[in-house]
């Protein structure tokens, strides 16, 4: 157990170091441009901008890393949030890697595989973004319109495939969760006017609640049988 803990401690140590470096690197371009061209917006300008982004995304800053943590764990949180696209690239790759390597997510082996998968997905996406930034402007216009239109369906198809995998493992929980979330989403726009960060945490709470209902139901059923 101690050696296992050493692995997590190493991840946390590197994770904290890298996040501190990233927090600094994050501000270098605006500092560089402000200094070079004398366009620093002033502290009041910075506060105004911070207010704007905090009002729009502030809830997501706190809610998303917290809501995703039970699924992505330590490695997935550090690497995933720094590289972004946690839901559509990192979690998807981790899930597929666990399926191929045949380990469960909540075992130590599963967490190691999920870490390797998250990092691998970063190599792929960073390379893809670099490639598209450099040559995308020349290549994309050459693609047929039908292929460009089909890009709209990448994410729905991806999540359809992943969800059916989860549903096969836990049919009752999967069906109950998706039904509850669909109802919330259908009504949240007009009636609840919920922020997307809040809808995320609500969806996670619904998933947990659905599994709690099943857990209690099964427990009661087995105790009735014993009686």
């Amino acid at each position: 157990m101690d050696v296992q803990n050493k692995y997590y401690r190493t991840l946390v140590k590197f994770g904290i170091g890298a996040m501190i470096y990233a927090c600094i690197a994050n501000f270098i371009p605006p500092i560089y441009i402000s200094a070079k061209y004398g366009t620093f917006p002033g502290l009041s300008g910075i506060f105004k901008l911070w207010g704007l982004v905090a009002a729009t995304y502030g809830i997501s800053w706190i809610v998303q890393p917290t809501a995703y943590f039970p699924t992505v764990g330590v490695a997935g949180s550090y690497v995933g949030w720094l590289a972004g696209s946690v839901g559509d690239i990192r979690m998807t790759s981790a899930n597929m890697a666990l399926k191929s390597a045949e380990y469960e997510a909540d075992t130590h082996e599963g967490k190691v595989i999920a870490n390797l998968a998250t990092c691998t997905s970063v190599f792929v996406s960073v390379a893809a973004i670099m490639l598209f930034t450099l040559i995308g402007g020349r290549v994309v216009p050459l693609l047929p319109q039908a292929v460009l239109d089909a890009f709209n369906y990448i994410l729905p198809a991806l999540f359809g495939s992943i969800y059916i995998d989860l549903l096969l493992k836990n049919p009752r929980g999967g069906l109950l969760t998706i039904a509850c979330i669909a109802v919330i989403l259908l009504f949240s726009g007009n009636i609840l006017e919920l922020n997307s960060g809040l809808v995320t945490i609500l969806a996670v709470a619904l998933g947990i609640l659905a599994n709690r209902v099943i857990f209690v139901y099964d427990k009661n059923k087995s105790s009735v049988k014993i009686d």
Binding site: L155, F159, L166, I181, A182, A205, G207
Partner: peptide, 17 residues
């Protein structure tokens, strides 16, 4: 089951949204 439920909730949200 709680951790599995949070994964279902997340992917359920990503899918339905």
């Amino acid at each position: 089951m709680l951790l599995a439920g949070s994964t279902l909730g997340l992917f359920g949200y990503l899918l339905t949204s």
